[in-house]
Deep mutational scan, measured.
Amino acid sequence: RPFRVCDHKRTIRKGLTAATRQELLAKALETLLLNGVLTLVLEEDGTAVDSEDFFQLLEDDTCLMVLQSGQSWS
Score class of each variant (00 low, 15 high):
1 R>V: 02
2 P>I: 15
4 R>Y: 15
4 R>L: 07
4 R>G: 05
5 V>S: 01
5 V>T: 04
6 C>L: 06
6 C>D: 00
6 C>F: 06
6 C>S: 06
7 D>F: 00
7 D>R: 02
7 D>M: 01
7 D>K: 02
7 D>T: 05
8 H>Y: 10
8 H>R: 14
9 K>G: 08
9 K>E: 09
9 K>F: 06
9 K>H: 09
9 K>R: 09
10 R>M: 03
10 R>K: 04
11 T>Y: 09
13 R>M: 15
13 R>K: 15
13 R>H: 13
13 R>D: 05
14 K>I: 13
14 K>T: 13
15 G>A: 14
15 G>L: 14
15 G>D: 12
15 G>H: 11
16 L>T: 06
16 L>M: 13
17 T>P: 04
18 A>E: 02
19 A>M: 15
19 A>P: 07
19 A>Q: 10
19 A>L: 08
20 T>E: 01
20 T>N: 09
20 T>R: 04
20 T>P: 01
21 R>F: 07
22 Q>L: 07
22 Q>S: 14
22 Q>W: 05
22 Q>N: 13
22 Q>E: 08
23 E>F: 02
23 E>T: 04
23 E>I: 05
24 L>E: 01
24 L>Y: 00
24 L>P: 03
25 L>R: 03
25 L>C: 10
25 L>P: 00
25 L>H: 07
25 L>Y: 09
26 A>Y: 13
26 A>I: 10
26 A>L: 13
26 A>T: 14
27 K>N: 11
28 A>I: 13
28 A>L: 05
29 L>C: 10
29 L>Y: 11
29 L>K: 11
29 L>V: 15
30 E>Q: 12
31 T>K: 12
31 T>I: 15
31 T>Y: 12
31 T>W: 10
31 T>D: 11
33 L>V: 12
33 L>Q: 14
34 L>M: 12
34 L>K: 05
35 N>S: 12
36 G>M: 01
36 G>I: 01
37 V>A: 11
38 L>F: 05
39 T>H: 11
39 T>I: 07
40 L>Y: 02
40 L>D: 00
40 L>A: 10
41 V>Q: 02
42 L>E: 04
42 L>G: 00
43 E>V: 03
43 E>F: 00
43 E>L: 01
43 E>Q: 00
43 E>W: 00
44 E>M: 10
44 E>A: 15
45 D>V: 03
45 D>I: 03
45 D>R: 00
45 D>C: 08
47 T>Q: 13
47 T>A: 09
47 T>D: 03
48 A>Q: 12
48 A>G: 10
49 V>H: 00
49 V>C: 07
49 V>K: 00
49 V>Y: 00
50 D>I: 04
50 D>N: 08
50 D>R: 06
51 S>N: 08
51 S>G: 10
52 E>F: 01
52 E>Y: 00
52 E>I: 04
52 E>D: 08
53 D>T: 09
53 D>V: 06
53 D>C: 07
53 D>Y: 06
53 D>F: 04
53 D>G: 07
54 F>V: 14
54 F>R: 12
54 F>M: 15
55 F>L: 06
55 F>H: 02
55 F>Q: 01
56 Q>C: 11
57 L>Y: 11
57 L>G: 14
57 L>R: 13
58 L>I: 11
58 L>P: 02
59 E>T: 13
59 E>R: 12
60 D>M: 08
60 D>E: 11
60 D>Y: 08
60 D>W: 09
61 D>E: 14
62 T>F: 03
62 T>R: 09
62 T>C: 05
63 C>L: 11
63 C>P: 14
63 C>F: 08
63 C>D: 09
64 L>F: 13
64 L>C: 04
65 M>T: 01
65 M>H: 01
66 V>L: 08
66 V>D: 00
66 V>Q: 00
66 V>W: 01
66 V>F: 03
66 V>N: 01
66 V>H: 07
67 L>T: 02
67 L>K: 00
67 L>M: 05
67 L>G: 00
67 L>C: 08
68 Q>K: 11
68 Q>H: 06
69 S>I: 09
69 S>G: 12
69 S>V: 10
69 S>R: 13
70 G>N: 12
71 Q>P: 00
71 Q>C: 05
71 Q>T: 06
72 S>P: 08
72 S>H: 12
72 S>Q: 11
72 S>R: 11
72 S>M: 11
72 S>E: 13
73 W>N: 08
73 W>T: 02
73 W>S: 03
73 W>K: 03
73 W>H: 06
73 W>M: 00
74 S>K: 12
74 S>L: 06
74 S>Q: 13
